[in-house]
């Protein structure tokens, strides 16, 4: 690319109207002849700065889809574009490296993206401060609680300075109280950084709590079944009646999708 890489939010880059574009993406696994189709014709744009939740039951290929967008795997058909460079990816497990301190984990991501040595420490501390872990720079991973680990993982993901953050059920393994707090944190950080988020979950309320758009995938193969725009203003809470009402509607639809699989 000819344009110099700067830390500007992608919105100012008027030439690209999307942070990710999926064009009829399909994915099959297995040998030819005995193939299993996991994703079928997924077409989806994530706008710059948008927060999109992908919702689905088991077997809808949510994680496969994120792997494809992250570039860890190739689609069998269709195209994926992420003009903002390699997307950052967060997993359900924190996936932090236990041989490094929290701060060094963040610095490794900075280093691999070419941030000069002299700037890394300060940059990493700034990111840890953003996830409100100011004093955790020198802490080992096992010295942190589950919620703190996920926040360090978030700081590491943000260290990639990618315009697209992919999240694969990042809060599923946390207790309800911590998850609730991290929802609030993520909303705040998303608003502060203008990053686009593609968030995968099987938790309907979580999707409605967080997303500007909720996309329901059917299972086996994963197809886009329906889409909702969530215009409940942030900050939302998971207990809000508007969140609950929409969740009921989406859950009905989701159950309908699941029921189809019991009929044959």
């Amino acid at each position: 690319m000819a344009t110099p890489v700067t830390e500007q939010p992608v919105q100012q880059d008027a030439g690209v109207p999307y942070a990710a574009r999926l064009d009829h993406v399909s994915k099959s696994f297995g040998r030819p002849g005995a193939q299993q189709q996991v994703l079928d014709g997924i077409t989806l744009d994530v706008a710059p700065g948008e927060f999109v939740c992908l919702l689905g039951a088991s077997g809808c290929g949510k994680s496969t889809l994120l792997n494809l967008v992250a570039g860890l795997d190739r689609p069998s058909a269709g195209g994926i574009e992420t003009p903002g460079g390699r997307p950052a990816l967060m997993f359900q497990e924190h996936a932090l490296f236990p041989w490094l301190t929290a701060g060094r984990n963040v610095e490794l991501a900075l280093r691999l993206r070419g941030v000069p040595r002299t700037e890394r420490r300060e940059h990493a501390e700034r990111l840890l401060e953003l996830v409100r872990l100011k004093g955790a720079y020198g802490k080992r991973v096992h010295e942190l609680s589950g919620g703190m680990r996920q926040r360090v993982a978030m700081a590491r993901a943000l260290a990639q300075d990618s315009q697209l953050l992919l999240m694969d059920e990042p809060f599923a393994a946390l207790d309800a109280i911590t998850r609730d707090v991290l929802h609030e944190e993520l909303t705040r950080i998303w608003a502060e950084t203008n990053v686009s988020v593609l968030f995968v979950t099987h938790n309907v309320r979580e999707a409605v709590r967080l997303g500007q758009r909720v996309i329901l995938l059917s299972s086996r193969p994963g197809r886009i079944a329906r889409e909702w725009t969530v215009d409940i203003p942030q900050p939302r809470r998971i207990e809000d009646s508007a969140v609950a009402d929409l969740s009921v509607e989406i859950t009905e639809q989701l159950r309908g999708e699941i029921r189809r699989h019991g009929q044959h």
Partner: peptide, 26 residues
């Protein structure tokens, strides 16, 4: 998972061996 996490933050090829594989195998 470590290898996947390493690849997503750009630790591929020799970088992956040096920053992820070898320390993880220590």
């Amino acid at each position: 998972l470590f290898l996947r996490a390493g690849r997503t933050i750009g630790a591929t090829g020799l970088h992956g061996v040096r920053h992820v594989l070898l320390p993880a195998a220590l």
